[in-house]
């Protein structure tokens, strides 16, 4: 936990190498750190600060600007219910209220067992399946209250483990190529590994 482990650090260095300026890797590195721990630990933010050449205060300041980056622990599943206009017109608030009852938490809270964090999301670009939900940024919809119950059951039972990785795992595909174009200063990602 906490600090970036060797594997994450390897990926981080390969990511930094993709950008003309180190600081650009700040957000991708935050995603990597979240993939490791589910949230951005203070130690990870300190590591990122060093990797991209800013202060930890700047990493935290930047990360907290963004909704997907969590500087406090969250559950294994972050259930984000979109309540924006299209979903609202299709009953999103009913789904959200039901989710609060079903999970026994309010928006922004995490269940005691650490399984679920409930969020009230802005439009997720899934309005054709309104009300739409994301669990760890995987789409589900339309989700009315009964569908929400089924979804929660499936998540809890592990039936969706293939589809929904633990929170923070954003992109399960690793980039395998480094920079190649003429004039680019970068080196192939693989060579950056320590």
């Amino acid at each position: 936990m906490a600090h970036l482990d060797d594997e994450t650090r390897r990926k981080a260095l390969a990511t930094v190498a993709l950008y003309p300026e180190r600081r650009s890797a700040l957000i991708p590195l935050c995603h990597l750190a979240q993939a490791q721990d589910g949230w951005l630990t203070p130690e990870a933010m300190e590591d990122i600060a060093e990797l991209v050449g800013v202060t930890p205060a700047e990493v935290r300041g930047t990360a907290t600007f963004y909704d997907m980056l969590h500087t406090e622990p969250v559950g294994r599943y972050v259930v984000a219910v979109c309540t924006n206009i299209a979903c609202m017109l299709s009953g999103a608030y009913e789904t959200l209220e039901h989710a609060e009852e079903r999970l026994g938490v309010h928006v922004g809270q995490t269940t005691e067992d650490g399984m679920f964090t409930l969020e009230d999301a802005e439009c997720l670009a899934g309005c054709d399946k309104a009300p739409c939900i994301q669990v760890n940024h995987r789409f589900f919809g339309p989700v009315d209250p009964p569908a929400l119950d089924r979804l929660v059951d499936d998540l809890a039972s592990g039936a969706l483990d293939e589809v929904v990785p633990p929170h923070g795992v954003l992109c399960r595909v690793e980039r395998t190529v480094g920079l190649e174009a003429a004039g680019a200063a970068g080196v192939p990602a693989a060579e950056e590994a320590p």
Partner: peptide, 16 residues
């Protein structure tokens, strides 16, 4: 640095 967004913005140090 500033932390958070919009009218939730606060000036903040890194906790430690």
């Amino acid at each position: 640095d500033f932390a958070f967004r919009g009218d939730a913005i606060e000036v903040a140090t890194f906790p430690s």
